[in-house]
Amino acid sequence: MVHADVGIVHPGAMGARVAAQAVAAGARVWWVPQGRSAATRERAEEFGLRPAAGLTELTDRCPVVLSVCPPAAALDLARQVAAAGFDGVYVDANAVSPARVARIAEALAGTGATLVDGGIAGPPPRTPGTTRLYLSGDAPAVEEVHQLFAGTLLTPVALAGPVGRASALKLAFAAYNKISYALAAEASALAESHGVLDDLRDLAGHLLPGTPLASPAQLAGAGPRAWRWEPEMTEIAEACRDSALPGAFADAAAQVFARWQAHKDDGSVTAGRLIAELGGTGGPSGPPRHS
């Protein structure tokens, strides 16, 4: 069992589940309730997180701080933690590009803090074997974080090498996995505009079973998460261009997910609604027939 004080900023749907695994391992996990939503407060209470009066108290109390937030907020949050005087192990476990990780390292430079690059692959950890936390950077700090989650539902995996490697792996996997949802939605919208969506799903069920193209329920799952996936696509596009690769696939996927922003955390949205919102509401066969 781990007996340590760990801070987390900020426990959203993913962050709260990550924090819960540290609690399960025996850590005392602290967070800052100020300015957070009622839903976030409920999650924190549900998973046994302890309230800190502010960011300074959290950073003074905790030798390890986890950052799990939307990609666009990652750099600013690291700057806030640095300004609070944190000098422990800072784990950036966000879906950001290696270039942004480098800027986060610059923000922490001179504070005494040690940056560990983290990449979460998989859904919020609820069951064994579904979710991994990849870690890279300073070896002793990586080992400290590895031990924090060892034996929990969040499987830690250490990568040899500097910060940036864990984020690169995370984005490379997300590029394939999440862009496939955007492709499935666009292919479905095209088929719907010509009245052959049922036939497309039948074909995909035979040749591509287990994919969003074959399963309306699976495709619908992208709607509530699109608000997080859209900025992640921006990070992927940046990472691709930094590697002299075309980022157009990620740019296009970002445009798809941006159309679904209104469905944030809406578990009732259907695949038909998402397809219609891509503009597949007309065509030779008229409006879409599917709900």
Rank of each mutant, 00 (worst) to 15 (best):
P125T: 03
P123I: 08
A82W: 04
A105Y: 00
P140H: 05
T131V: 02
S67M: 08
V96I: 15
V116N: 06
T111I: 07
Q80D: 14
P70L: 05
A102W: 09
A113M: 08
L108W: 06
G88M: 04
I120L: 12
S67V: 09
P128Q: 09
A82R: 08
G119H: 01
A105C: 02
L135S: 03
L115T: 11
S67W: 04
A73K: 13
D138L: 11
G88A: 10
T127Y: 09
Y134G: 04
A74Y: 07
R132V: 15
L75M: 11
R79T: 03
R132P: 07
A99V: 11
A72M: 08
A83M: 08
A95M: 05
A105E: 01
D87H: 15
C69A: 14
V91Y: 02
V101Q: 09
G85K: 13
G112T: 04
P123K: 05
A102Q: 12
V91C: 10
V64P: 00
E106V: 01
T130S: 09
E106I: 01
R132C: 12
P125V: 01
P128Y: 09
P124T: 04
A74C: 12
L115G: 11
A78D: 09
R103L: 07
L115K: 08
L108F: 09
T127L: 13
V96S: 13
